[in-house]
Structures are given as structure tokens and as C-alpha cells.
Design a protein around this nucleic acid. Structure first.
Lengths: 167, 167
DNA sequence: ATAAACTTTCAATAATTATTGAAAGTTTAA
DNA sequence: TTAAACTTTCAATAATTATTGAAAGTTTAT
């Protein structure tokens, strides 16, 4: 496998993985491209490399900036805008975990709390609903907390020693 | 909010959350319905409650069984098949984490390993590709390990004390 | 062996989501 | 102030994914 094959494989794999972290294919591919680039890329560069339209590139770059993963780079003397992504994987993971928690997990926790707080009318089905949604609420909250805590540790040794601990 | 409102809210929220754990809406809704039901439900029951077709119900129940989340229940004297879901949230989380890891994370780890193992031809771009995909490989592998380890702890106190530790 | 009761399959269709491309908008240089 | 260089917006369209429903398949009771 040479450089170009490897690059294509990485970008497309990372793209199809997008669904795993809740973003679309183009968005994930743009991020992947920037992630392995040695220098900032222009919209033109990205469109050409991924063979996607200008509009698509623009919209997805904006979303990546909203997530806080990609930033604009001004290159003196250049008219075009250039883009870079966060290059540190730990920091990338931190941002993604935080955003997903905020956008998706928190709202679910809220609903689970609401649902599990309905008045117990004494019927079996109500008791079951309360019991099960409460369990789900606790689990979701704990998992969310843990992921955020783990991912917020700046130093990698923490992750490593933690892993050793629970083996 | 009464029982029925709460039930509808829970089922639809859990359904739209499906994307978070990589399954479709109907599948997640069926699971949600079974999760709060006090007794096994027939295909008829599910179709009626969620207002979805027989075919859809059949296909999604089969997928849930493939995941190992739902099981067939034979009720003596009854011709119909009945279904139940795993009721313990810890066990449910264990199954889901394991399946997602197997279906989605492992293949990605494999590709990252391949890509990061290409021959270093000395160019800057190749060095960057290797460096970045290697970092991603290590992170993904560590995260996958941790999630599996955490979720495999049967006793909840482990999770709790672990959480306290990393606070 | 037959038929009723039930489940599965899958081609057709509907719903959703992503992408295009060109017009409108913005910024900069002269 | 003008126009070139660039970016954004968004209605139309394409691609993908989910759903239906009816025919085919299976099981069970008689």
C-alpha cells in the first residue's frame, strides 16, 4: 500500500465511521483530510480532493467549526480562507465527547428524568415504567459522567493507569 | 403527565436515540416498548402499539434477536410467538457495547493499523499520515478497551468507586 | 392430508437525508 | 466605486434508508 492508497483508505473509512460519532460522511471526510494534511487546506483543495461540490464543502466546514474541531487560518497575502483541524487526538476526543453529550445525551437524560418522575398510581405497569426508566436514567448519567471524566484527563498516563486498575 | 403520555414520550425519545447506538428507529422503539412492558408481547401487540406494519415488526424483531437483546418466549397453549427484552440495564449496556465494538470499532481499528503500517518513504506527508493514524489507532483501541472493561463489571459498585476515583 | 394461524420475505414505495449548482452575498484591492 | 475573488445560501435533485403489504413459507391441530 503506497501513500495515496493509504490516504484514500483512511479518508473513506473515517468517513463511513462518521455515523459512529454522529456526523455525516462528507463532514467526517473533510476532517480526516485535514487531520493528515501537513498544511492548511483551502476550500478549493478540499473540493478537488474529495470530489464534492463547493456548497457541500462550505456547509460541512461550517459545521466542523461549530463543533470546534476545525478552525479558519488566515494566510498573509492570500485571499482564500484556509482550514486546519485539531491535531491532538486526546483533545479531539475531548471535544467530540463534550459536544455529543451536550447535543444528544443531556436531552435524553432530561426526558428520562421527567418520565421516571410521574406519579405512581399503584398499577403494575406504572411501577414498571418508573422502575425501568429510572434505571436507564441512572445508567445513562453515570456513563455520560464517566466518559466526560476520562476524556477530560489531559495526561495520557491517567487513562493508562485507570485501564490497568480495572483489568 | 400520566402513564400513557409518559409511555409515548419514553418510547419515542428512545426511538430517536437509536442513532446514538447505531440502530434504526423502529428497532429502538420496539426495544423500548418491551423494556417497560410487564409481560411478553406478541407481534400483534407491537404492531398495534407502534402503528407499524407486520413486515417491519418482523424484520426488526429479528435484528433485535440477532443483537441478543430480545428473546422469543413460548407461552404454553398459545399459537403466537411472544417477545421479551433484557430487563437489566447493566446487562443491556454490556451487550450493546460488545456488539458495537465487534461490528464497528474492530474493523476501524484494523484499517487504522493497516494504514499506519505503510512503508515510510521519508516524505513529510507520509510521516504525517503514519503519525496521525497511529495516534488514532492507539486512542481508538484504548477507548474500546476501556468501554468494554467498564461495561463488563457486573457489580455496580465498581463503576461507582471508579467514578469517584477519577473525579 | 388439509386448512387455519401464524411468520417471513422482498419488490415496490415512501420518507429522510445528503448533495449540487447557480444566484446572492461579502470582502478586498485598486 | 467598481469589479474581481471569493464564500454562503437554498431550492431542486439525487442517494440512501426505512416501511409497507401481499404472496410465499411454516407450523400445528384435527
Amino acid at each position: 500500500m503506497n501513500y495515496n492508497e493509504a490516504k484514500i483508505k483512511f479518508v473513506s473509512t473515517w468517513g463511513s465511521l462518521g455515523s459512529l460519532w454522529g456526523i455525516n460522511k462528507a463532514m467526517a471526510q473533510i476532517q480526516a483530510l485535514l487531520f493528515i494534511s501537513t498544511k492548511p487546506l483551502s476550500m478549493e483543495d478540499i473540493m478537488e480532493d474529495l470530489k464534492i461540490s463547493r456548497g457541500n464543502t462550505s456547509m460541512n466546514l461550517r459545521q466542523l467549526m461549530d463543533w470546534g474541531i476545525v478552525t479558519k487560518e488566515i494566510i498573509p497575502g492570500e485571499r482564500k480562507e484556509y482550514f486546519t483541524t485539531e491535531k491532538d487526538v486526546q483533545e479531539l476526543a475531548r471535544i467530540i465527547a463534550k459536544e455529543r453529550s451536550r447535543r444528544e445525551i443531556q436531552p435524553v437524560i432530561k426526558v428520562l428524568k421527567e418520565v421516571s418522575s410521574i406519579k405512581d398510581d399503584g398499577t403494575e405497569k406504572t411501577k414498571e415504567l418508573i422502575k425501568q426508566t429510572k434505571a436507564l436514567h441512572d445508567l445513562t448519567e453515570t456513563a455520560d459522567d464517566m466518559i466526560n471524566k476520562i476524556v477530560n484527563q489531559k495526561q495520557n498516563w491517567v487513562t493508562k493507569s485507570l485501564l490497568k486498575l480495572i483489568k
